[in-house]
Simulated scan of single mutants.
Amino acid sequence: MTTSTPRSLTQHRMVWGFRILLALAFGAAGASKLAGVPQMVQLFDAVGFGQGFRYLTGAVEIMGALLVLVPATGFLGGLLLAATMVGGVATHLLLIGGNPFPAMVLGLLSAFVAWRLRPASPSSVGR
């Protein structure tokens, strides 16, 4: 029988905290896009890919927020949200200007969660 060390319990709680934070942030951002908040409509007008892209982005953000909360899909949710934020950073840097820092932070947190939840490699099973 193995016991959890305090460090691993702390790490487990930290990752869950980040997962909840990401779900709240992306859930709110996705909902604002799907609800047609005027600021989001203006932002996606500036991006230039049409309002359908706003709906797609909102749906992806909400899907990622849900996936990151489910233990079996947390890794995929983290990857999806990290990839979404790569697009968000690129959009700020290349298309609309503004501060890409919030998207960078959310992207790094999403990547960290995906890394911590990555599946075990087949060669490490049974060691």
Rank of each mutant, 00 (worst) to 15 (best):
Val37Tyr: 07
Met104Gln: 13
Glu61Asp: 10
Ala59Tyr: 09
Ala83Thr: 10
Ser32Tyr: 08
Met85Gly: 03
Phe53Tyr: 14
Arg127Ser: 13
Leu43Asp: 07
Leu22Ala: 06
Leu94Ile: 02
Leu34Ile: 13
Gly48Phe: 00
Leu108Lys: 09
Ala120Gln: 14
Leu76Asn: 03
Val113Lys: 01
Arg13Asn: 10
Leu67Gly: 03
Met40Lys: 13
Phe101Asp: 09
Leu117Val: 01
Met14Asn: 00
Gly27Cys: 13
Leu24His: 02
Gly87Met: 04
Ala31His: 08
Leu108Asp: 10
Thr91Trp: 04
Phe18Pro: 00
Gly126Ile: 10
Leu81Arg: 04
Leu76Asp: 03
Pro38Ile: 06
Trp16Glu: 09
Ala111Thr: 05
Leu22Gly: 05
Ala65Ile: 07
Val86Tyr: 08
Trp115Pro: 00
Gly52Arg: 00
Thr5His: 09
Leu80Trp: 03
Arg7Trp: 14
Leu79Ala: 06
Leu106Pro: 02
Gly36His: 11
Ala46Gln: 15
Ser8Leu: 12
His92Tyr: 03
Leu9Ser: 13
Leu106Thr: 03
Thr3Leu: 14
Phe18Asp: 02
Ala114Met: 09
Thr57Met: 11
Leu56Val: 13
Gly52Phe: 01
Gly98Phe: 01
Gly64Cys: 09
Trp115Met: 14
Pro71Lys: 00
Ala46Thr: 10
Leu81Gln: 03
Gly58Val: 03
Phe75Met: 13
Leu93Asp: 05
Phe112Trp: 15
Gln42Tyr: 00
Ala28His: 07
Phe44His: 02
Ala111Asn: 06
Ala120Thr: 14
Leu117Gln: 06
Leu56Ile: 10
Phe26His: 10
Gly107Phe: 08
Ser123Asp: 13
Lys33Pro: 04
Ala29Gly: 12
Leu9His: 01
Leu93Lys: 03
Phe44Met: 08
Ala72Trp: 14
Val60Asn: 01
Leu56Cys: 02
Met85Glu: 06
Arg19Asp: 02
Ala90Arg: 09
Gln42Pro: 03
Leu79Trp: 12
Phe75Gly: 03
Met85His: 07
Val113Gly: 01
Ala83Lys: 05
Arg116Thr: 14
Thr73Gln: 07
Val113Ser: 04
Thr5Lys: 08
Phe75His: 14
Trp115Lys: 01
Gly27Arg: 12
Gly87Leu: 05
Val15Phe: 06
Ser32Lys: 09
Leu22Gln: 06
Gly97Arg: 04
Val60Pro: 00
